[in-house]
């Protein structure tokens, strides 16, 4: 009955129409360049550098993909490394972040402000690339180790604060009810709070996973050429940049350049890098459900 009433309300109806229209429009804007990317990746280099991109491939060819998959073993290895890091890093990072975020929003935790500041402070001042590099690669001895990349992406102040904010919206009654049952703080967190944080876990987990998936910077600093299988984005970044570096005359070095399809190659790498992770989002999305009700807690 109620639902019917709401549907009849004209302003609500208007809002719905606007919503559908705007979301559709923005989606088209988002997907349009992607269509260009896909079509360019199947185009012939010399044609698109003359005529520009089109919505359909110009001079259909697979040569850019042949370049990307020139060494299938390498790219599969890269996928393996990145997937392993993403899965492990997201799981571990998410758990630590959720734990910390929950603790930091507890009003009865005397250190919450001190620790919050301690964590937040790191976003304001960082030592900068060189000192950090010397510390991590030299003193910690992580140069050439996947750990250097894995560990540094494990958490960020931003995600902890985000989690803390989400955890705030979980009613304190839940914690209290756990306490009455005689459960310890960790037990309360693990068995009562953690399941209630689903939208937050989905959000933070998604961000963590994207962080791992898109990572190339730390890899370029700490892994360089010392590992056989580079993380995917770094591997692809290398393909793109190799084309750029070798083609520009900046490098005084005499390098024999083979026929690299520069522009189309860039586009093909984008398709290869993005393809699999696109499927992650719908999977994550099912956790975005309005779930928390006080009634559920009390009942």
């Amino acid at each position: 009955m109620n639902k019917n009433k709401i549907k009849l309300d004209p302003s609500t109806k208007l809002l719905k129409i606007i919503s559908y229209a705007v979301v559709t429009l923005w989606s088209v804007i988002c997907i349009f360049p992607f269509v260009l990317v896909i079509s360019a990746s199947f185009s012939t280099e010399s044609i698109i550098s003359r005529e520009g991109f089109g919505l359909l491939p110009k001079g259909f060819t697979l040569s850019a993909y042949e370049w990307v998959f020139r060494y299938p073993k390498m790219i599969l290895g890269s996928y393996g490394v990145t997937i392993a890091m993403t899965v492990l890093g997201t799981a571990l990072g998410l758990f630590i972040i959720a734990m910390t975020g929950y603790a930091l929003q507890r009003k009865d935790f005397p250190l919450r402000n001190v620790i919050s500041f301690f964590i937040y402070f790191t976003t304001l001042f960082s030592a900068g690339m060189v000192p950090t590099y010397l510390w991590v690669s030299g003193t910690l001895g992580l140069k050439g180790s996947y750990l250097a990349v894995f560990l540094q992406l494990l958490m960020s102040p931003w995600l902890i604060v985000l989690m803390k904010n989400f955890a705030k919206s979980v009613p304190y009654e839940i914690t209290e009810s756990g306490k009455i049952d005689g459960a310890g703080d960790f037990r309360i967190f693990l068995s009562l709070i953690f399941p209630m944080l689903k939208p937050a876990l989905a959000t933070v987990g998604l961000f963590l996973a994207l962080g791992y998936w898109n990572e190339w910077y730390q890899s370029s600093l700490y892994l360089g050429s010392s590992v056989t299988y580079k993380p995917l984005q770094y591997y692809l970044y290398g393909i793109i940049n190799q084309a750029n570096a070798l083609k520009s005359s900046v490098a005084g070095a005499n390098v024999t350049i083979t026929d690299l399809p520069t522009n189309t190659l860039k586009m093909a790498t984008a398709v290869v890098a993005t393809g699999p992770i696109i499927f992650l989002y719908p999977f994550v999305q099912k956790y975005f459900i309005s779930g928390i009700t006080v009634g559920a807690v009390k009942g």
Binding site: Y133, L134, S137, S220, L221, G224, Y234, Y237, Q242, A245
Partner: peptide, 15 residues
């Protein structure tokens, strides 16, 4: 590697 070789080269010496 040619990816950011200027930075990379100097970092190698720096380390």
């Amino acid at each position: 590697e040619w990816t950011d070789w200027q930075t990379q080269y100097n970092l190698q010496l720096l380390s």
